[in-house]
Nucleic acid binder design. Structure first.
Lengths: 233, 233
DNA sequence: CGTGTATTTGAACACATTCAAGCTAGGTGG
DNA sequence: CCACCTAGCTTGAATGTGTTCAAATACACG
């Protein structure tokens, strides 16, 4: 009933990443049939902290921020997700986080029960989810180290270095494309918007990065950036 | 070949928690046979960040701290684990963290390959590991919120409230037993030892807690502690 | 080209840290 | 039994990093 969707699925940008990469083309229709595709506008919140955790999501296009709020408005962004990323593991019966699109997003929504049925048939899916969760745990711990122990300049340098590694796109000299605002960056790094701005200015003055207006940052001195960020992993 | 160990396994303090709880007594020997039991002395490091991640661990007795270090000695404790806790998910091919016993520890060590063989036969184990990882992700995100956005007094209050919930032992008025040193607490909360000490003194003066000398703290005013810690979950 | 949003920059301030000294409890040996 | 020693903890004063408050500038979009 969804031959057309299956074909689209095979050509999806996320086809060979994360969850989807777990199945061969032959079995892919089991996942494709369980997927509810939808488009999320920039700024739209598609997961709300505290709501019953009924779905998982897989990002096919765009990017989103995941965050937790305190009662008085303070916010901590716990991660940014992009194409191929799986969203929704951090939940018991209710979501522990909220998610908002920072770019127009296309995603596949999976009912948790339905996905469980698929993974019962293909244990490789459950195993893949475990790998994804393990990797997220590693990232989360590194972020705890950053938030608990690193200085402002170390946090920004760590972030840029990490973002560079995630988007490794052939040319190591190409400018990084940061889809998020300064405010998002601040809320991710446990800083204020002013501090992020000042630190970026400092890194620019030191000749480590070049900051362009259109959310693009070029890394001029990788070695120095990694040294500042204390990222030797 | 291990009837005696199986019987001990059934009476283990961790029998009905986490990983072990996934199997019925009838199937338990598959796990028991894969377990290598060992004793870890207080202060002993049994996982080292960067080493090949060959094992998982399940704590049967005692408690340990998990942490990451920076080159200059700054340390972030990413979690404390106790009886029934599973250790080792936060790893790819190498451990992303180190683990040190803060009390004498008894644990079951599992070779990752062997455990994979068991979980191939009992998918419920893989599912349980995913549940454990999901729960750890929730905890990790709450910790990011704490480290990135909460004040010193909010961090300490959150910790005490969280520790209280973990050790919920019948009597809600019973003093909490904190196995870790002030220094560990500081490294967990992203503070210094002096700040932790000052904040505890402040909470004591406010009549929220009573601090005894033997690592015991009584919570005198739960509502106020939760309010200070911004823990409404 | 004008308007609103995002970002940068500046100055005063605050919270937590650093450095330093004192205290307490537990263990050891005279 | 008490003096002494050490490790852990507490308290105090000065300092510093990042925040807060405020204003100016740059940018994107109509």
């Amino acid at each position: 009933m969804s031959r057309h969707e299956l074909e689209a699925c095979k050509r999806c940008d996320a086809r060979h990443q994360g969850l989807c990469d777990a199945l061969h083309d032959d079995d892919l229709h089991f996942l494709s049939d369980a997927a509810h595709r939808s488009a999320i506008a920039k700024g739209e919140v598609f997961v709300t902290e505290g709501n019953p955790a009924r779905n998982f999501f897989n990002i096919n296009q765009g990017a989103a921020k995941l965050y937790m709020d305190l009662a008085d408005g303070r916010r901590q962004i716990t991660g940014f997700v992009g194409v191929g990323d799986f969203v929704g593991l951090a939940a018991g019966t209710r979501y522990a986080f909220s998610a908002e699109a920072i770019e127009p997003v296309q995603l596949c929504r999976f009912d948790r029960i339905e996905l469980r049925a698929v993974s019962a048939r293909f244990p490789v899916i459950e195993r893949r989810l475990l790998e994804i969760a393990s990797h997220e745990l590693v990232i989360a711990q590194e972020q705890m180290l950053l938030l608990g122990r690193k200085t402002a300049i170390e946090r920004v340098a760590s972030f840029l270095e990490g973002w560079y590694r995630r988007t490794l796109c052939a040319d190591p000299g190409a400018p990084l494309d940061l889809p998020m605002l300064r405010g998002d960056l601040a809320e991710y790094l446990g800083l204020t918007i002013e501090t992020v701005s000042r630190v970026l200015a400092s890194l620019r003055r030191q000749g480590v990065v070049a900051v362009a207006a259109d959310h693009r940052i070029s890394i001029l001195d990788h070695a120095r950036l990694a040294a500042i960020g204390q990222t030797f992993a």
